[in-house]
Design a protein around this nucleic acid. Structure first.
Lengths: 393, 393
DNA sequence: CCTCATTTGCTCTCGGCGAGAACATAATGG
DNA sequence: CCATTATGTTCTCGCCGAGAGCAAATGAGG
């Protein structure tokens, strides 16, 4: 959205601004609010709303009267309007949902999958996507897919846990016309948090997602920072904790080795069974909650490393707020004191006056699907996306 | 620059785009190039150029003929056009320069200063700024100041080296109407590098400036990433190297303790005399060049920590290129092998196929002043800045 | 129940902007 | 010296948003 250059682009640009604003506010904003906030003339707004309705992009519905004066209406999704297909592909299962303008989500399907080979997993997933395309037809304007590993140029670079390497996922998931967009799960969880969760309205926010791995995103004005090749946010692979272990990623001493499901198990001295780390970590957290000394000690150790590393990122990146999801949120919840101490001690002195708050993510487990939907809509809510829609209707 | 919304803003927006493009290309771009690249109609370009000339914002001058066809002209600075005052305030001296549209720099003055108290230093500097405002009058459209420490809300937060704390520098340097903007020296060096140096045209670039401290900036589309409070880029204050030393900043194990002038001296075992670290570091580098074993070892140790930490940042932030300035560039030059090895070993495996190149900064010592000028022009080259200029002429 | 104040939607006119075409201009190259 | 080529200049046209005036729909107060 670089802005309009010609008087012809102006109309499309303002249409886009209005639709985007309606979407960002969950379809709950009234026309008068939108008109005021976007600085439009009332006449212009009338034309734009009519255009949106005629193009089946959005529709007004009655709004509860709040003050006196002529009643206004809320601008929300159109019953025949665009839908995003949002896919959350985890290590052991996938979720497919549809989202309408405004973000309203309908979960359609959840399926376990064997994990390997990638061709089979993605083939099945592509078939499922194909079914929804057939069912919902041209209303599907894009597919957003969250994946548990780094993404580059439409390919999954590396999921060590599943031994996926350089998998051309966009190619394998492209079924029909709608564009397929990939995103890292942690980054998409952050995106969701920035748009509809705890980072909403925060100019610069940091989201950290801890599970097996540790990743995240820096959200600037609600948009995730994109690296040169799209693989940014791998904060877990900086040697922030002085560890000397070798990491699966190829480097040494990665922070992710000290914070996460595997780290929790390792800290208790329990051997890590591949494929059961998540359940094991849950057990450690539960036992720590009951006061089991070894688990308490492990939790504290992990929380300390987590807090210290978070402080390092805050020092370097200066976010206004930090949100946590995955196991990370539970570690923080259950060892708040230790986390807070390590966090504070790791901050530069001048940051300690008003340290950025660290909070659990507001969206919980849904965050990743929501982020995938936002990703798909981000591709659609552009000049190109809208003109494609309009020429198809 | 969010883009035009009304047909009235369109003109200003396009005027701005044209002026910005002329500026970014150093005043060396021809009208026909600009017209083509900005996608303007030739008629529109004619009007805009005439407007710019009439407003004394830019002026055309003959261009060397390259091909057949009617000759075009280069759009560059106007002899009575806007000037930015660029100030580089270092620990022991300051430089004042003026820059015109296109970036052409004229160094006006260099003065040593005692460093303390800040009121005296900034008072003298304000007096100097006042002289240039008086001399050059309303042509000065902004003052950009580079400072060797973190900045927040127009105040210098902390320069441990000079024991400056929470100094209201904008207030103390504001002499007349032109807005005063502050920037961290490392971040501004990065900005300069992104606009007119080695990071030009790189969508996401990382610049690291090593001197006493270690700082830098992440440049996204030529703009430095701004944190929530403006104090981003303090990469030196992450515990990237496993050090256990306490840092002046208040944290422990900061990377900056292992890379920089002081670190170089410490690694040789030489006691660090305050105020002479820079000269001492230069001596160590010179002796290392001659093969003095202790200095060679120190250099290698520092280069190793530097390379490893750089890799960590690349893992997390995914830049397309990295540039180095200050002592950092010399460390890299003189210990390329060690740096490269540590860099490569610290990268995640999938990044090693095409690791981002690490290069010394193209602008050398001028970078900071150039960055300060760019900062001042960034404030001016906005709708608000331009309307202020036009209403004053 | 009636009236007034208030807020918002609707419609129409007006000024302004960029596109694009037609023409003018100034260089090159054979 | 003339054809070719690339660019600047000028003018018309269609489109857009601002803004004014009016209509509509509600709540407040008597």
């Amino acid at each position: 959205m670089t802005g309009a250059t010609t008087s012809g682009e102006l109309r499309l640009h303002n249409l886009l601004r209005l639709l985007r604003a309606a979407h960002d506010r969950g379809g709950e904003a009234t026309r008068s609010e939108l008109t005021r906030d976007l600085g439009l003339a009332r006449g212009t707004a009338a034309v734009l709303v009519a255009d949106l309705a005629e193009a089946r992009l959005a529709q007004e519905r009655p709004a509860p009267q709040r003050t006196r004066g002529r009643p206004t209406a809320m601008l929300g999704p159109h019953p025949e309007g665009p839908l995003a297909l949002a896919v959350d592909l985890r290590e052991d299962a996938w979720t497919i949902a549809t989202a309408e303008i405004g973000g309203g989500l309908t979960v359609r399907e959840e399926q376990p999958h064997p994990g390997n080979p990638p061709e089979a997993v993605l083939g099945d997933l592509a078939a499922a996507i194909g079914r929804y395309l057939a069912e919902l037809g041209p209303r599907i304007v894009g597919v957003g897919v969250a994946l548990p590993g780094p993404i580059r140029d439409g390919r999954v670079v590396d999921i060590p846990h599943l031994s996926w390497r350089d998998v051309p996922a966009v190619e394998m998931l492209s079924v029909g016309a709608p564009p397929v967009s990939l995103g890292n799960d942690a980054a998409l969880a952050g995106l969701a948090e920035a748009r509809r969760g705890g980072l909403r309205g925060i100019p610069v926010g940091l989201h950290l997602h801890v599970d097996f791995d540790l990743g995240g995103a820096l959200l600037v004005d609600g948009n995730p920072l994109q690296g040169a090749r799209g693989t940014t946010g791998e904060f877990g692979h900086m040697p922030l904790g002085g560890s000397t272990l070798r990491c699966d990623c190829g480097a040494v001493g990665c922070w992710a080795l000290q914070v996460g499901a595997t780290a929790l198990l390792r800290a208790t001295g329990t051997p890590v069974e591949p494929g059961h780390a998540r359940a094991g970590a849950r057990r450690v957290l539960a036992q720590a909650d009951e006061g089991e000394p070894r688990c308490v000690a492990a939790l504290e150790e992990v929380a300390r490393a987590f807090g210290a590393g978070t402080a390092a990122l805050v020092n370097a990146l200066d976010p206004g707020r930090v949100t946590l999801s995955g196991v990370g949120a539970r570690i923080h919840d259950q060892a708040t004191g230790m986390f807070a101490t390590a966090y504070r001690d790791g901050l530069m002195t001048f940051r300690r006056e008003q340290p950025p708050p660290v909070l659990p993510a507001a969206l919980g487990a849904d965050a990743t699907v929501v982020g995938a939907a936002e990703l798909a809509f981000d591709v659609f809510l552009t000049a190109a996306g809208l003109t494609a829609w309009q020429s198809a209707h």
